[in-house]
Amino acid sequence: MFNLIRNEWMKIFKRVGTYVMLGLLVAIIGITGATSKYLDSQKKVSDEWKKEVQTQIAEDKEMLKGNMPGYMKEETEKSIAINEYRLENDLKPYQKANVWSYVEDNAYLVMFVGLFTIIVSAGIVASEFTWGTIKLLLIRPISRSKILISKYITVLLYGLSQLVVLFVVSFLLGLILFGGIGESAHLAYVDGAVVEQNMVWYLIKTYLLKTIDVAMMATMAFMISAVFRSSSLAIGISVFLLFMGSNLTSLIAMKFDWAKFSLFANTDLTQYTGFQPPLVKGMTMGFSITMILVYFVIFQVLAFVFFTKRDVAS
């Protein structure tokens, strides 16, 4: 199995596109760094932060009096709770960016990691059929299941490596641009209460939990690739759902609670760590993990059944 994974890994890095995607990821991080540095230089540090926080609380409470979608209401309640906690405990909010706030902001760039992983995942099976190399694989004394497993593990390792690049480069660039480590605690709003979390552990946990999102999107692309033998179809469908799936689910969730059964309502487990509120009120991490496992099993069963049972002689 190790040799199979190594061979698949070598195939990925023999392609020019792999280095292009890596370069694009680093370039995007650089662009966000330059933008953050410029915006940070325009900020004015105020000595009357308590007054500003009190004003923000008053504005948020006024907003709550109107009709708001559930998601926006929870965001506003979170803002009020955190700001009140700051006043009670004399915790000054960020007024200038630091390395940790920059790394936290770049967590949203995981969508690009997902995009690049989808491209690799969509082609790792379908390309074998396109180039006709699938026959060379199948004549070897190795079961089809092992071949597919090795390809899937390689995809996951590639996605994980991209996340590591995102985190490490963001940290190093943030350290260069903003210096220092700043505030060591992160205020999160979890289960209706404000809790202080260690900043380093919070960021590591956030990035690790976001690997679930990347892994599920890659798994879906992998399944489509194995079922339809088309990398373009797998990329097209998966990329569309990557960028639109959560947005469409959010719109549905404003009206219907059954939106919580959608894959895209559950893959982002950071909604249970204070990074953002749950998409549908009442959702729990246990529920989301269960839904993820259900979708994972469905995707894997489809991929393995079609790959191992279908005739590839043609």
Rank of each mutant, 00 (worst) to 15 (best):
L166W: 11
K151E: 10
L157D: 03
I139Q: 15
V164F: 07
K151L: 06
L138P: 08
V155H: 00
V155N: 00
L160A: 15
I147K: 04
K151T: 06
G159P: 03
Y152R: 03
I139W: 11
G159C: 07
Y158A: 01
I139E: 12
S161R: 09
S150I: 05
I147N: 04
R144H: 02
Y152I: 00
I139F: 13
Y158S: 02
L163D: 08
L157I: 13
V164A: 13
S143D: 11
L138H: 10
V164M: 07
T154L: 08
Y158C: 02
I139C: 12
L148F: 02
K151R: 14
S150T: 06
L157C: 06
Y152E: 01
L156P: 00
I147Q: 07
L166V: 11
I153K: 11
I149S: 12
K151I: 04
T154E: 09
L148M: 07
V164T: 04
K146T: 03
Q162M: 15
R144C: 05
V165P: 10
I147R: 06
L160M: 12
L138G: 06
T154W: 07
G159I: 01
I142Q: 05
L148Q: 08
G159N: 02
L160G: 08
R140H: 14
I153F: 13
L137A: 12
L160P: 04
Q162R: 10
L160C: 09
L137V: 10
L157E: 00
L137M: 15
S161Y: 07
R140N: 15
K146W: 03
L138F: 15
V164E: 01
L156H: 03
L137W: 15
R140L: 14
L157M: 14
V165F: 06
V165D: 09
Y152V: 01
K151Y: 08
V165A: 12
Q162I: 12
L156T: 01
L156W: 01
R140T: 14
L157R: 01
S150C: 06
L160N: 05
L138E: 15
L138D: 08
L148T: 05
L163Y: 13
L137P: 09
S145D: 09
R144E: 00
V155I: 06
L157T: 04
P141S: 03
L160Y: 09
L160R: 02
S143K: 13
I147H: 07
L156Y: 01
I139V: 15
I149P: 05
I142E: 06
L137H: 13
I142F: 04
S150L: 05
V164K: 04
R144I: 01
L156F: 02
V155D: 00
L163W: 10
Y158D: 01
L163C: 13
G159E: 00
S143A: 13
P141I: 02
L148N: 06
L137C: 13
L148H: 03
Q162P: 08
I142P: 00
L138A: 06
S145N: 13
I147C: 05
P141V: 05
I153M: 12
I153H: 11
S150N: 08
I149W: 12
T154I: 09
S161I: 06
S143N: 12
S150M: 09
R144W: 03
S145H: 12
S145Y: 13
K146D: 01
